[in-house]
């Protein structure tokens, strides 16, 4: 039996046994794939697995995470979610911030294929709670990251000046980010970036996201994929994920009990020694 049959069968079991009230997954229709909430067992034959869409995103203009909206709208429901590695990490980070209630979500964790992992440049293409499929190794090392690190400071400035000058201020990188959950977004505030102007402030506009998401980025790369002008945003996030690990020994999306380092004190999440020598 193929992977997708297994997923469909398990989803059917969960729905039939009323373990969950609905299954949130991807549906294929007329060759197009999109997120869908399955409540009817009969429709499960259209359930597919794909790396096209994350099932964890903030709806705009509602400015709410989709799962959080579902759980709010249907206060007694329990929802099964077909998740891959990145989605599970996103759910964990959201739960930390009180956005979703993991007790009301049943995770149907599936492993990604080697090809999908490579396409996403994913370092951990499987969820911790793996239910179906076989783990494949994540991608190690990243060409874009290495290329950036090999550049001098002036070369980096020239590189980013070109990239950010293309920006058309669509806010797509923020809109697709499962971690961008603020109702009032600094990227929209005139204090930081002049409104109505293209390209938006360099580097301020993008810096805001780099910094805000630095310790919570789960590395899904959606921001880069949503960019109409191909700004390599994931490069910075990959570097920051590594920095956060080095500095605070923290990885986003691993453990719901572990608090994010930028919100805690040095006693709760200490910084590594060598960066603690400031002004002592």
């Amino acid at each position: 039996m193929s992977m997708i049959d297994n997923v469909q069968n398990l989803a059917r079991e969960w729905l039939d046994s009323k373990e969950v009230d609905a299954i949130f997954g991807l549906k294929e229709q007329d060759g197009y794939i999109a997120p869908y909430l399955f409540t009817d067992v009969g429709e499960l034959s259209c359930l597919v697995i794909s790396n096209q869409y994350r099932l964890c995103y903030t709806c705009r203009p509602a400015k709410e995470n989709i799962l959080s909206l579902m759980l709010q709208t249907e206060p007694n429901a329990k929802i099964g979610v077909v998740v891959r590695g990145c989605e599970e990490r996103a759910l964990i980070e959201l739960a930390k911030r009180g956005q979703v209630d993991l007790k009301r979500i049943k995770i149907l964790g599936v492993a990604c294929s080697k090809e999908d992992a490579e396409e996403c440049r994913c370092e951990k293409p499987y969820p911790g709670n793996l239910v179906l499929g076989e783990k494949v190794e994540g991608v190690s090392g990243d060409e874009n990251v290495n290329a950036l690190l090999s550049k001098s400071l002036p070369e980096r400035r020239a590189f980013w000046k070109h990239e950010f000058s293309k920006c058309i201020k669509c806010y797509g990188c923020r809109n697709v980010c499962p971690m961008c959950i603020c109702k009032d977004c600094k990227m929209e505030q005139e204090l930081y970036t002049e409104t109505g102007w293209l390209p938006p402030g360099i580097p301020m506009f993008h810096f805001i996201r780099f910094y805000h998401i630095s310790d919570r980025c789960i590395g899904c790369g959606e921001c880069e994929k949503a960019c109409p002008v191909d700004i390599p945003l994931l490069t910075i996030f990959k570097l920051l994920q590594k920095d956060v690990k080095d500095l605070f020994d923290y990885e986003a999306g691993m453990d719901v009990e572990q608090e994010e380092p930028l919100l805690t004190t040095l006693d709760e999440t200490p910084m590594r020694e060598e960066v603690m020598d400031v002004g002592v």
């Binding site: 400071l153 805690t264 004190t265 910084m271 603690m276």
Partner: peptide, 21 residues
């Protein structure tokens, strides 16, 4: 200041990646 020290560490790294000393 616990938070400041952590934030500044991240800030410095981002600046470096963007080419600002």
């Amino acid at each position: 200041n616990h938070r400041t020290v952590k934030r500044m560490a991240i800030l410095e790294r981002i600046l470096g990646y963007l080419g600002i000393d």
